[in-house]
Structures are given as C-alpha cells and as structure tokens.
Write a protein that binds this DNA or RNA. Structure first.
Length: 578
RNA sequence: CGGGCUGUGGCGCAGUUUGGUUAGCGCGCUGCGUUCGGGACGCAGAGGUCCCCGGUUCAAAUCCGGGCAGCCCGACCA
C-alpha cells in the first residue's frame, strides 16, 4: 500500500476529474493520451502542464518512494530557490551558455536585477551548503530537494516526457576528497537503483557524456522504451552499458597489410555539387560503390586544438570524443588542404594535419574519397598507398553487432528514456563558487569534492504510465496508484440498497485507513466500468444488485483482470487480498 | 534553428478547392422522461471573436498579405 499523501479518500461525484472518450489531437504517445483522457494532466502551453488532483497524487507517490530511499541513504531534504541571481551563474561561468543548446535557461528581469529560472542547482547548492559547512568534521553531507526546474526546451514533446517546466529530485554530495566523494556517489547510485525497482521500472545505469554539468565519471539511468529519445549500447556478455554518445567498440587497431601491387591507380572524377555521402553514391550509380565504400572525412580539432582529419566509413555516424569539435566555416580559411565537402586523407600529413581513423576503416580499399579539390572525388584510393593513418581508434557510433570494448561479444542498441543522471563533479563548482572550501584536519583549506544527481519526477510519471497500460487505459503499480482501491456502485440511483451497501463499505474501508476512490455517481454501468479501466486503480470493488442479493461484492484486479467474489461483510483485509 | 502539416463551441472533426440564407456533425454539458452489469435512448435546450491583424469584395470560415500558436520530422538535449 502506498504512503499516505495529500487528499482524503474521495467520492467521484466530487472529484475534479473529467475523462475524455477521445484523446486530444496533439497527444502522440500512449502515456500522454491516457494521462489526458483520464484527467490526470492538462496542457497549459507547449511543454507546460497542470497536474489535476489524480495526477498530483501519482506525483506524490513517486516522490514518496524517492524520499524514503534517499532518506534511508542518509540524504537530507531541503528546498532551494527556483529564482537565482544571475551573478551566481556568472561566477561559475555557465551564464555564458544561456541561450545555447547546451544550457537553454530562461531569465527574468526583476527589481533586484536579472534572475535565472533555475534549470539545475549546482551553483546555488554550492554557496548554500558551503556557507554552512566550514570544517572537515561536518563532512560528508548529501542534500536533496524535489522541485520545479525550468528549461527553454527547443522542442517539448510527448506530454511529460520532455517539458519546459519539470519536477526533478536533485541531490548533491559534499565530501573531503575524491575517494570519499566516490563512496557518496555509490550510495546515491545504489539508492537510485532501489527507487527504480520500487517504481516497477527496469532501469539500466549506463556510462554517458556529462554535457553542461561537467565532471569525469557519470551515469545515466535508462529505461528501455519504445518512446525513448536516447539509445544505449548493452553487452549481453559482460554487462557493459553506455549511451551511444559515449560508447566505444572493441577490436584491436587494425593491421590492414600492404595494398595489392596490381591495383589500378586512383582516378579523379568531376563531381560538382555533391558534397554528401549519398550524393556521391548517386553520382557513381554503381552497385560496387555503396556508402560503406566511401570515407567520411571530418575536419576537427582534438582536445589539444590540433588539426585532425577523422576518417569513418561512409555508412557510419561519426562519434567525436569529448573535447573535440568540428571545424567551422571560418576554420577552413586557415587550412587550405581541407576543402569543405571534398576532403580526402591523401597527403594531409604534409600539411600538418594528423590523420586519425575509426577501426572500421582498417582495410586497403578501394575507397572513394574527396580529392581535396572543389567539386572532385577520387575512386580507387588505397590505404597504405594513397594515404596513411597516424592513429586508430573507436570514432564511429556503435551499432548492434559491434564488438564490446570490454569482452568482444556482439553488443545491442536499445532505445530508452533517460530517467536519471548522476555525476562525479569533483571540484568544478567548489573551486569557483564562494564558500566552496572547508578547513581540513591539518588546518589548511580545501575545496569540496562534489557529486550531483538528478531524477526527473514528472518524466517518471509518464514513463510509468507508458510501461503500465493496456488498450482500455492505465494500470498503475500498486505503490504508485492515486488510490489503491476503486469502489464502484452499480445503479445507486435506482437501487437504494446498493447505494447503502456501497456507502457502508466505503466507510469501513476509510475506517481501516484504506485510501479509496468511490464512484458513487448515478451513471450507467458502462460509463463506470470504462472510467475505472481508464483511470487504472489496481483493485476495483464492485457493489451491484446482483451480488448484493447473494451478499457478495466483486473484486477485480486491473492488471490481470482476475475477478472473484467476496462476502460483503468480510474483513477489510480479506476484501483487498489478491 | 531548418522542413512539413494544422488552427472552426470543452474534446474529436466536416465545411475552405469553386466567396452567398441562420456555420454543421459526433462526444461532452443542462432539463424532463424511459432505460441501465461494459461508454443507453427519446424530446427540449445552452454554448462559436471560424487563431489574430490588415486587405480585396455588395458579401469572407472560404481569396490575398503579414503575424501568432500547436503538432510532426530533423538539429539539439541536463
């Protein structure tokens, strides 16, 4: 039975809910459609939703699970402001990212200056907790809050899955050093795993990129789902799991060997207006020239700002290691050997460009490449004769069947929703924010070693709905349902004895502390059945004239459809028992 | 930010191509009656700036121009 939350038991004749027979046209995914049809949520603007009483109760259930596990893990709940003075963000340097894709924050002008509608809370928590913690004796400490966050999402979608205003449970750990921080990280990580288990979600922790938050080690908690916007790589052999953005593939650096002596020389072709892989394949119009026979040549800077030409087979998406960036148009001006749209590896080393290739390029060829001359490509290009590779690595996005970097087994690609993300921050924020230091045991000063942890509560509501429904409607897990029991009276208006029996049962359930949604409305049976199925409480208790004549009620499980009769005067425990 | 589609009572839609009485239909809502163990039926009713602004015209939901909003695809994503 779920923890007690918010509102008292409820008669449906009074509940603020209206079920819809049809879903609004803007609802694309099932969870969104059902949550709107069931009167759980309503849209106010794009990516901005109201939670009606039923929706809020589910939200509170999820929060209850999160609170109990974080509390158990020794975390302390607090509540930070959603409105942040912009100066804090200038201190961390992240204000420069506002308006960009990595940190699309919203700001508001007030009397006190510019405020940021908090998209995340590293800055605020560092100065807030830092001001209270002055000594190593007070460490470690982990705090958390459940609060609204604001993000100016480029494209909100799928109901609560991607919104501009969202509810998040975010935690922050403060430790004396990296080792202690890693222990705190593990504690929250384990708590997260227990939370997902209690939410009946199959979440996998995966290695990920850290994005705008920063830090070295981080994990995303991915819930496999058809409506997911992310993909992660999973190895059935050893358990390796990583976001495709961070995943690498295994296999040794290739040794392609010498090119064949008798191969014809490379041939140059005039290919005007065909900069893309598909364009060039169309040009050759030859079954022997497939995308995989082309070299995708990307001009990039590596983490040390060196000029690098990155080679990937044409049928693969490139994956840039973090810290690397693609050359922009203005960068090409300084690198005349790289002709945008017609780049090839031949002779690049002579121009001071390092040639780095994905292991998938480890065969002689023949390859089709750019000719480093506008509107021209080369065919019959051979590795070892026409170009050489300085360094091999994993630079292509991993796909199903690629070898695992740990054990070599074939990995699989899984579509998933990112439900949480945890980061080992180190001193990224404590180094620069006021109050980010404490006094050490030997009287010196050191910066906190921090971790941060975020879980999307409102997103989880959608994820749970997505994973727990059928064609008739929602089917909440017992711990998350707004009410564990849905009591339905059939025809109370025409059968006063039915109404009286249902009322009596309602009061008995309440007296036993059971939170019950009571459909006392005088509407036709079909409407009541349909609404009960749509709303999805785990247990439906039915009082009707038929059963009443024999002194029984009917108990039906929403998830399994199992139904059995129970004497009306049976004890509450046996009425509810499966 | 690029491409596409769509804006008509609370919800789902028709009508727009070819301008012309009072803008329709289903669901929902109100009242009365009948019915009612899987979204009942009849009768009567309420509810609309046809997204907004401007233009063309005797006449605009409909044609033209400009905005705005929503959704989808892509890019991006904590």
């Amino acid at each position: 039975m779920g923890r007690k939350v918010g509102s008292p038991p409820m008669r449906m004749s009074r509940l603020l809910v209206r079920t819809l027979r049809e879903a609004p046209a803007d609802a694309e995914v099932v969870s969104h459609q059902l949550l709107v049809r069931g009167g759980y949520i309503r849209r106010l603007a794009s990516g901005v939703y109201s939670f009606l009483p039923l929706g809020l109760r589910v939200l509170h259930r999820i929060e209850g699970v999160i609170r109990s596990e974080l509390d158990r893990a020794g975390c302390q709940e607090l509540l930070l402001p959603a409105l942040h003075p912009v100066e804090l963000w200038e201190q961390s340097g992240r204000a420069a990212l506002f308006g960009s894709d990595v940190l699309p924050a919203l700001t508001v002008e007030g009397r006190g200056g510019t405020f940021v509608l908090g998209p995340t809370h590293e800055e605020v928590v560092t100065v807030t907790v830092g001001a209270e913690v002055e000594s190593y004796r007070q460490l470690p400490v982990t705090v958390y809050q459940i609060q609204v966050k604001f993000r100016d999402e480029a494209r909100p979608r799928f109901g609560l899955l991607r919104t501009r205003e969202l509810i998040m449970a975010d935690a922050y750990s403060f430790d004396a050093d990296k080792t202690a921080m890693q222990a705190s990280y593990r504690t929250v990580y384990d708590a997260y795993l227990r939370i997902f288990e209690r939410l009946s979600l199959d979440a996998s922790p995966v290695e990920a990129e850290s994005g705008a938050i920063g830090g070295d080690v981080n994990h995303e908690f991915m819930v496999p789902s058809a409506v997911g916007e992310d993909h992660f790589v999973r190895c059935p052999g050893c358990g390796y799991a990583a976001n495709v953005e961070a995943a690498t593939r295994g296999g040794d650096a290739p040794a392609p060997g010498p090119p064949p002596d008798d191969a014809p020389p490379a041939v140059e072709h005039h290919t005007p207006g065909r900069p893309g892989i598909e364009d060039v394949v169309d040009f050759f119009d030859d079954p022997a020239v497939r995308p995989g026979d082309l070299l995708k040549s990307l001009a990039v800077f590596d983490e040390d700002q060196r000029e690098v030409l990155l080679l990937v087979a044409g049928d693969r998406e490139a994956r840039l290691p973090s810290g690397w960036r693609l050359m922009e148009d203005e960068d090409f001006v300084d690198h005349r050997s790289l002709v945008k749209g017609y780049i090839g590896p031949t002779g690049q080393q002579a121009h001071g460009v390092l040639v780095v290739a994905d292991v998938g390029v480890g065969r002689p060829g023949p390859w089709v490449t750019g000719a480093n001359r506008a509107d021209h490509h080369l065919s019959g290009v051979l590795l070892g004769r026409d170009f050489t590779v300085d360094r091999w690595g994993s630079f292509a996005q991993v796909v199903t069947g690629d070898p695992c970097p740990r054990c070599g087994s074939a990995v699989e690609l899984v579509r998933a929703v990112e439900a949480a993300h945890t980061f080992q921050l180190g001193t990224k924020y404590s180094d620069v924010m006021a109050g980010g230091t404490y006094v050490t045991e030997d009287g010196g000063e050191a910066a906190f070693s921090m971790g941060c942890y975020g879980m999307g509560v409102s997103r989880l509501l959608s994820v749970v709905a997505e994973e727990h429904h059928d064609e008739r409607g929602l089917a909440w897990p017992e711990d998350l349902a707004p009410y564990p029991v849905h009591l339905v009276s059939l025809g109370p208006g025409r059968a006063p004895e039915v109404a009286a029996a249902a009322d009596a049962l309602y009061h008995r359930l309440m007296a036993s502390g059971v939170e019950v949604l009571y459909d006392d409305r005088d509407v036709s049976p079909g409407v009541k059945f349909a609404d009960a199925d749509l709303l999805g409480m785990p247990v439906r208790l039915l009082v009707g004239a038929k059963g009443l004549a024999r002194g029984v009620l009917e108990r039906r499980s929403r998830a399994t459809g199992e139904e059995r009769e129970v004497p009306l005067d049976a004890p509450v425990a046996s009425v509810l028992a499966p």
